[in-house]
Design a protein around this nucleic acid. Sequence first.
DNA 1: GTGAAAGCGCTAACAT
DNA 2: ATGTTAGCGCTTTCAC
Lengths: 328, 328
Amino acid sequence: MAKVTIQEVARAAGVSKGTVSRVLNARDGVNTETRTSVLDVMTQLGYVPDPGARNLARRGKHVIGLSLDGDERRGNTYYGILRDALESRFSSEGYSTRIFSGYDPAMLEAESDGVILLGVHLDDSRPNQLEARGVPFVMVGHSLEHAERAPWVDVDNISGLFEAVRHLTKLGHKSIAHLTGASTGQASRQRLEGYRKGMLEAALPVNNLLVWDGEFTEVGGYRAVRRALAAKLEFSAIAAASDEMAFGAIMALEDEGFRIPWDVSVTGFDDLPSAAAFKPALSTVRQDINTIGTRAAEMLLQNMAGKKVSSALVPVKLIVRASSGAKT
Amino acid sequence: MAKVTIQEVARAAGVSKGTVSRVLNARDGVNTETRTSVLDVMTQLGYVPDPGARNLARRGKHVIGLSLDGDERRGNTYYGILRDALESRFSSEGYSTRIFSGYDPAMLEAESDGVILLGVHLDDSRPNQLEARGVPFVMVGHSLEHAERAPWVDVDNISGLFEAVRHLTKLGHKSIAHLTGASTGQASRQRLEGYRKGMLEAALPVNNLLVWDGEFTEVGGYRAVRRALAAKLEFSAIAAASDEMAFGAIMALEDEGFRIPWDVSVTGFDDLPSAAAFKPALSTVRQDINTIGTRAAEMLLQNMAGKKVSSALVPVKLIVRASSGAKT
DNA sequence: GTGAAAGCGCTAACAT
DNA sequence: ATGTTAGCGCTTTCAC
């Protein structure tokens, strides 16, 4: 595993360091043949560019800022994974990432070359400010308000819950509850909309008493279900807006003697690693957090390079496991 | 904020780059006067060494591995903060950090210069293996089994819970329950021991029915309290082994109509950022996660430099807020 | 289109 | 004890 450098690649390919560097940076002005041959040699030798050296030669700050507004840290399995994905993509490009929690646009501008905006909400001032300052940025998550300000990557929330509800209605369920998160978040609204669309499609009424706030946490889900049970609400299925709320819901149901999925079917959203391991294994809408992170990173990289990029809606996929079953 | 380099420091101090580099790396063979004067110039100019350039010149891999066994990721506010602290300390030293989840000692050895071991448990094989391979490492958390293998940093768990219980007994509480975490973890055991010592000190009996497993999560705390209530257990205070379990406990209590702290006093452990914001503000044992991370990083750095370092027990501090009050 | 050479900020010999 | 000088791996002029 001896370190292979650009020099060796150059020699092996019979060209100069300069040329190798050019193909490495996808700069044009390189003969197509030379390019492919160099590329070949690279993979053959298992060449991996040294980020430190690149930064040094490029002379920049080379840090990208992760701006979290408030406590995205909480409830965080999701953010942990996302952060890993961003980090690994950026670091392989020679950028280090830094978390900026206390939101300070001036600092962001001074200390980073570009920024990833996490958890943008309705009346968020960050997109405007960043745009005004001309700092390249991309948002993870989106809302109509800010959609035009900068490119964003988001998961297809609406389709996700729509699919979950359709799955449930096909199973014969009619009274389907929805566990929603904080009302200020975009994701919650969109998932709620997906729920409504799903009910509509099956010509089922949307009963507001069956839309519960689970605060996007396990306990939140647990308590919401307890309240519903205490209020003697009738339902045979729950489509939750997150896996964690679904976990909480299932615990509450089981604590009260209900069996999943025989008495009540439950679906989640996210497909966290723990969803498959849960008892019963959770039926859920998978969103590939890694893809989202990688996409966002790539978009920002392009953006910083001055290229125009367009936003992306990442598709979701319904994963059916043991927590949902036919209405009995 | 123009970038100041070692060259400029050298000129301003009237010495050569070499000398500046020497003081920068705390290498000896430098006149004390020169050293202090160089140091002065550095702070005056606001000099910050460029990590990339250092790595490049030092020719090493310069990555330190964070080994998490299994899913430390979960329940994670704690690990998020810890990781930030480690990262910032290491990166200012020119090291990048990488997470190694699937534990593979060979990989760890091949790809990192040193490793931080997180969540070491009783029958953990990592300390032995790492030691056998001669990889420098330090552990965050400790157990008697591994205490001699390598330096560790840990919070004073025993004193922490001891203080919490003493606080409660001084308030007049006699029936004090303890919410504990997973029994395999060291921290849980030590906190449980602190609880026992606290009860002992006040000549109070330890009733095993009042030691509840809250799985170190909010829901876990919530459910444990519900079970206790359903079993009609008598208690006027709860000393939890984590803030999150305490949050869950308070929610369960309030959902059943109890008022905190009038009907039941509750204390936590960690002092997460959310503890002060919680309603009611949580009395808890503060452990400074940042200090722990920074200490661990510093120890590893020393260790890698071949210096002998000794383990550290970081003190804790009881923070009294609104969730605990006199027994009525 | 490609090579040669200069340098990015720093460390590590080697001198003195 | 300190200065000098090569590089580290890469990008970027500037020639050709």
